[in-house]
Simulated assay, not measured.
Amino acid sequence: MLETITLGGGCFWCLEAVFQRVVGVSDVTSGYMGGYVDQPLYNQVCQGNTGHAEVVQIQFDPHQITLNDLLDIFFVIHNPTTLNQQGHDVGTQYRSAIFTESSAHAEVARAKIAALAGDYSAPIVTELATAAMFWPAELEHHDYYRQHPNQPYCMAVVEPKLQKFLQHFAEKAK
C-alpha cells in the first residue's frame, strides 16, 4: 500500500525533479499546501499572498523506500535553516515544510529534525504540520525539469540539486 508525504523546500520544480528519480516513489505532483486561499494559482502563490508553500506531494512504497530515507534526501537537497527562503527564492511560499498524513509520519519527521539539529550551524526552521488541502499546480508546472532542462533556472538551480541527490544517494536513484 502506498503512503503519501508532502514536502516544501523552495521551488517545487527542484523537489519534483529529484523525487521523480527515487526508487520506490510512484508519483510526484507539484502543488500548493498550507495556505488560506481555495484553488490558488501559481501567480498568486508567487506573490506570497495566499499563505501556501510550493510543495510536492509524494506517493511512495514504504517497502521500497522508507519515509526516513525520503527525509534524508529532502534535508540534503535544500537548506532547512533559512526561514522562508531557498537561495534567491524568497517568501513564505518557499519555506521548508513537512506536511504529514499520519501521527506515525509526524513522529518520524520530528525524530529526523531532532537527529539533524546538530549537523547545522543554524537552527532548523522546517515547519512540521498536518497535511491540509493539497492543490495541484497548473499542468505547465508538472514535469517541468524534464520538459525544460535547458531553461536557465533549471540549469542554475534544479540541475545542481539533482546532482547533489545523485552524489549522495546514487543507490536510491532509479
Rank of each mutant, 00 (worst) to 15 (best):
F19P: 06
F19Y: 14
F19Q: 10
Q20K: 15
Q20C: 05
R21E: 15
R21P: 01
V22C: 03
V22G: 06
V22D: 03
V23I: 14
V23C: 08
V23Y: 02
G24T: 09
G24S: 09
G24Q: 11
G24V: 11
V25Q: 10
V25A: 09
V25D: 09
V25L: 08
S26E: 15
S26R: 15
D27V: 05
D27W: 02
V28G: 04
T29R: 15
T29M: 08
T29F: 01
G31I: 00
Y32C: 05
Y32K: 13
Y32R: 11
M33K: 12
M33Y: 11
M33R: 15
G34D: 09
G34V: 07
G35D: 08
G35R: 11
Y36L: 00
V37T: 15
V37D: 00
V37R: 03
D38Y: 10
D38I: 08
Q39I: 00
P40L: 07
L41A: 13
L41I: 14
L41K: 15
L41S: 07
Y42N: 12
Y42A: 13
N43W: 03
N43Y: 05
N43S: 12
Q44S: 11
V45I: 09
V45A: 05
C46M: 10
C46S: 12
Q47I: 05
G48Q: 09
G48F: 01
G48C: 03
N49C: 08
N49K: 14
T50S: 05
T50D: 03
T50H: 10
T50C: 06
G51R: 12
G51V: 09
G51Y: 08
H52D: 04
H52Q: 13
H52K: 13
H52V: 01
H52A: 03
A53K: 04
A53I: 00
E54D: 06
E54S: 06
E54R: 10
V55N: 01
V55P: 00
V56G: 00
V56Y: 00
Q57H: 04
Q57P: 04
Q57W: 02
I58L: 07
I58C: 04
Q59T: 11
Q59L: 10
Q59W: 00
Q59H: 12
F60P: 03
F60M: 05
F60L: 10
D61Y: 07
P62G: 04
P62K: 09
P62F: 01
H63A: 10
Q64V: 02
Q64A: 11
Q64D: 01
Q64T: 06
Q64R: 15
I65F: 02
I65T: 15
I65K: 10
I65C: 08
T66A: 13
T66M: 04
T66D: 03
T66N: 07
L67M: 13
L67E: 10
L67P: 07
D69G: 00
L70M: 08
L70P: 05
L70V: 13
I73S: 01
I73F: 04
I73A: 03
I73T: 04
I73N: 01
F74S: 00
F74L: 02
F74W: 04
F74Q: 02
V76D: 06
V76N: 01
I77H: 05
I77N: 02
H78T: 07
N79Q: 11
N79W: 00
N79P: 00
N79G: 00
P80D: 07
P80N: 09
P80W: 04
P80I: 07
P80G: 07
P80H: 08
T82F: 01
T82V: 01
L83E: 12
N84E: 12
N84K: 13
N84P: 03
Q86E: 10
G87A: 05
G87Y: 04
